[in-house]
Design a protein around this nucleic acid. Structure first.
Lengths: 158, 158
DNA sequence: TCCCATTGCATAGATTTCTAAGTAATTCCT
DNA sequence: AGGAATTACTTAGAAATCTATGCAATGGGA
């Protein structure tokens, strides 16, 4: 029979229930948010993939694709695909920059600008629904903790 | 000029920075967890999509596909795709049930069972890295809050 | 000036996930 | 017993995301 410490370690690894795993809790919450967001923006003809880009463009219209990718936190090929669908849906125009012909400036159409307030309200409503019944102090603590987790993980390379 | 309350409401909707949105914070954290998990399990020949199913099967070997879908929290077509790739990788066998020939029982191979402890250790390490430097009480509060948010959102139909 | 490294975007191909609709086995009701 | 409803899985097709690679415009150094 192994010594107590070895046994404890073994049990510790063998049992790792999802309820105790921050990663699982975060995943579940993320899926719940996504699901609701998707349902509520589809009626506006906006997909979840377009949403993140719209959100940045509403405050930073005219960014280049590279800047946009960085702000949204997506890889550039993802941006290409999202922008293509947004162009098809009449949400943006792409304009080759004159001073540097490699760059493409992304510009919102009037249609996209008109959607802004209503869609931001949708996002805020979902947040309010998620936070219902949660103490303000707990909420503030939650934000600090989850931001810290993200920062912790982002510092790790491999 | 609109009355103060109307103005406050308008500003409230017009400005909704991601830093204050639980949804965005959750999304960022989720992506950080995913990124690291994916990097660390790829060397074992396991993809992120297979991971969730392995994790359930390690404690509930022999479930049917439907039960598995429910436990993992994925739609059934997603399960079909994941299981197909797991079968190709030699992680599972699928066995048509004899008492009900509609059902397919999913069984782990010896290879998948051998991976269990090492991969669970990977998950635990990531959790520990994410939680580094966070107060135990804050962590407990975090788990309550995020589980409550998920529950809140899951109650909403549309 | 001309070559080459860098920069900005695009393509290719894979994976993960969904919704909607199909097929086959089982069960239930008359 | 036979048809209808239900159950379990599958297929089809779309979307969102990634890594790896390609191409074209730019700029810097010999």
């Amino acid at each position: 029979m192994p010594p107590p410490s070895a046994k404890a370690k073994s049990v510790r690894v063998l049992e790792f229930p999802p309820r105790l795993s921050s990663g699982y809790l975060v995943r579940d919450a993320h899926r719940a948010f996504q699901r609701l967001l998707e349902r509520r923006i589809t009626p506006y003809g906006v997909t979840r993939g377009q949403w993140y880009f719209l959100r940045v463009l509403w405050t930073h219209d005219g960014l280049s694709q590279r800047e946009l990718s960085a702000r949204v936190g997506m890889m550039e090929p993802t941006t290409v695909i999202a922008l293509r669908s947004m162009e098809r849906s009449g949400l943006i125009h792409r304009l080759r920059s004159d001073d540097d012909r490699r760059k493409v400036r992304v510009l919102l159409t009037a249609k996209a600008k008109r959607l802004r307030n209503e869609l931001l309200a949708v996002a805020r409503t979902i947040t309010e629904e998620a936070e219902a019944g949660i103490d303000m102090r707990d909420l503030a603590s939650f934000r600090r903790v989850i931001a810290r987790m993200t920062a912790n993980l982002d510092l790790i390379e491999r």
